[in-house]
């Protein structure tokens, strides 16, 4: 049983990576939010399991915080933004999806290679997860780079935070509670501000395509 739980954390890490990949290749906005919700739920479960294995009880609290923020509140906010902006169409990407996924594989190989020397140093319960977390972060970066619209970019930003959170949990058994609370609050405030931004961009340009922002300096 005790040997299975770290493997279970590994499995959850793999699921996070899978969801990150699914998000980079997802065309539909609603499905993107659903995937983000699932990623949040997986992250919360992983945090709780790590907390149980290492008997670090403050991790339960941060798992609960993750559920409230990333499974309930932020997806609800994003749904509301989509409703109010009336976006239901497919997401447009700069690079086509198969190419993005090929780049994604390259990114994953890079992250895994990068993490091997680091994971040799650490003796945390699932040192292999560091590579997975790094890959998640880089994939979310990739998603932010390849999307042209504001909403998927915000989701990419949030997914990146998920990856960072997983790295912190799996590699170092979580950050101090104050830091975690601070980050949680930052993400929430970030989403609120970005939501306001989206409305502003929309009002200015009648579209959420951030390419319009490049022309500001010409005026």
């Amino acid at each position: 049983m005790s040997a299975l739980l770290p493997q279970f954390v590994n499995l959850l890490g793999a699921v996070l990576l899978l969801l990150a990949f699914a998000m980079t290749s997802q065309r539909r906005m609603l499905a993107l939010i659903h995937l983000f919700t699932m990623q949040g739920a997986t992250l919360a479960l992983a945090t709780a399991v790590v907390g149980y294995v290492t008997r670090q009880h403050h991790l339960y609290l941060s798992a609960g915080l993750t559920v409230v923020l990333k499974v309930l509140l932020i997806p609800w906010l994003l749904h509301r933004v989509l409703d109010r902006l009336g976006i239901r169409r497919d997401v447009e990407t700069l690079i086509n999806i198969p190419t993005t996924m090929l780049i994604g594989i390259g990114v994953v190989i890079f992250a895994f290679n990068l993490s091997i020397p680091i994971s040799h140093l650490s003796s945390a319960l699932a040192s292999g997860t560091l590579g997975i977390a790094l890959a998640c972060v880089l994939l979310s970066f990739l998603m932010m780079i390849t999307r042209t619209k504001a909403v998927p970019q915000v989701i990419g930003f949030l997914a990146m935070e998920n990856g960072l959170f997983f790295a912190a949990t799996a590699a170092t058994y979580g950050m101090p509670m104050v830091v975690e609370l601070g980050i949680g609050l930052d993400v929430l405030v970030g989403v609120l501000i970005l939501g306001v931004f989206m409305f502003q961009i929309r009002e200015q340009f009648d579209s959420l395509d951030i390419h319009h922002l490049e022309q500001l300096k010409d005026d």
């Binding site: 899978l18 996924m101 994604g104 594989i105 895994f112």
Partner: peptide, 24 residues
Amino acid sequence: VPEFLATAFLLAVLGMLVQLLLAR
């Protein structure tokens, strides 16, 4: 269809990579 199957291929490659990473 090519996209669907490319996704399958990439997932399989990812699986192999994860296997290699976690096996060490």
